[in-house]
Design a protein around this nucleic acid. Structure first.
Lengths: 234, 234
DNA sequence: CGGGACTTTGACTATTCTCAAATTCTGTGG
DNA sequence: CCACAGAATTTGAGAATAGTCAAAGTCCCG
């Protein structure tokens, strides 16, 4: 993987009240008055594809919400093998570990150009003392994170390479663009699915040959979702 | 798998104040007065090995704490393939989904004879309104559950069958009994690791042949943890 | 003692990995 | 706009690994 400088671009203090994805994000349940109590700023920030957002062991003082783009969380085995353990996209919250622990347990990296909101963890703690609706929302986030972990195991770590790739493509296409989805490198594709880069590449080639998918531009995939689903639902 | 009748044995109302594992369980942070506010009963209950605790889609009204034994959470793919997505043992809390959802997303089954405490979910909700220490404890549970999901993916779903088996054996031996651990069926071993029963069996045989483990009684494993660790840490 | 459920083993097949070499893509500087 | 270098992807061939199907062998209980 080509090295990308750790770079970020601050794009201003977030205007949460008028956030376009607000009804899906963490503060969805907050009343106007609660917002006014937010004296600490929530930043918006942009990471280019490939940039590291935080590393394993970094001090955890911030929660992140994905406004756009795609983020991977990576974990390492002692022998250096790395495995992507989660993918986050729009409205997903990550770094929740900051609520509990001092250091992040993952390395977080932008896979596509990515816009994030940064919430200082103590802002959330302050709010929590007052608003118990936020607690419920937070709990729901934990729950969602855990559900995707389960799905990750059953769908992306089980079965043949073909089934795994197909399930991932279907998952990436879920946001409904008529089967269109933006993929990332074959290397990351392999790391998501526990396969080698070569197997990931071969499997994609095979799917193309049979007309299940096409790739008009590199990493722009168009899926025949109906036929793909038949492949794995059987 | 031999069919085990859905059976359970109620063993009385739990005496939480004097619980032997209390300092590790959910209510660790609660004050005496909070306990007195618990008017709804917390049951203790025993499940024999093989018994189902709840099934996918069952109405979720109860949280469970494991007092002893071992529990598996299973999830199914559309084609009927099943995958164990988590193992729970002493002090682990499961069924937290009940706080958020109406139905359980997993099937929970006892792998060994298992003692559980049942907490009605509304008891927890009532307490939460009063005590925000409980919220923190709950959050910590979510966090722990998610960390084990991550570990599951990196350690139990990655690498060769031998590495996966070894990592699981080391994990089971962690409670420190000089490398002793109680295993479950080869079928479940395979389902934990995403391997077939035969591969699980062959891998165990291989480890025995090389003297890394021995099995004095069926499913009672003694591990040479030092040498096993060398196998996977390299 | 017998039968059912698990486990082990064997032989064969299929899949995936490894290592290596070609090919394509991308961004930069001339 | 083109040439080129570095990176990523694709493809190939052979080796290693895991899966499949079938047949013993064990264990456990009644």
């Amino acid at each position: 993987m080509k090295h990308v400088a750790l770079s970020e671009a601050w794009t201003g203090v977030a205007d949460c009240k008028n956030c376009t994805i607000r009804n899906a994000v963490l503060f969805a349940g907050l009343k106007e008055t609660d917002f006014d109590a937010l004296h600490r700023p929530i930043d918006q920030i942009v990471y280019p594809a490939g940039a590291q957002i935080y590393g394993t062991g970094d001090e955890a003082k911030t929660l992140f919400t994905v406004r756009s783009g795609l983020v991977k969380l990576t974990q390492y085995l002692p022998d250096g093998t790395q495995r992507i353990v989660r993918l986050l996209h729009q409205t997903d919250l990550f770094g929740l570990e900051a609520l509990i622990e001092d250091a992040y347990p993952h390395t977080a990296t932008a896979l596509h150009d990515t816009e994030l909101c940064r919430l200082p963890v103590d802002v959330v703690r302050d709010l929590s003392r007052a608003s118990s609706g936020l607690y419920h929302e937070l709990m729901a986030r934990w729950h969602r994170a855990l559900s995707s972990a389960d799905r990750w195991i059953t769908e992306f770590s089980t079965g043949s390479s073909r089934d795994r790739v197909v399930r991932l493509l279907l998952w990436l296409s879920e946001p409904e663009d008529g089967g269109r989805c933006a993929l990332f490198s074959r290397e990351d594709l392999g790391a998501v699915l526990g396969l080698t880069t070569e197997t990931a590449s071969r499997t994609m080639a095979e799917l193309k040959r049979h007309g299940f998918i096409s790739e008009p531009k590199p990493n722009q995939i168009v899926c025949d979702t109906v036929r793909l689903r038949r492949l794995v639902d059987g």
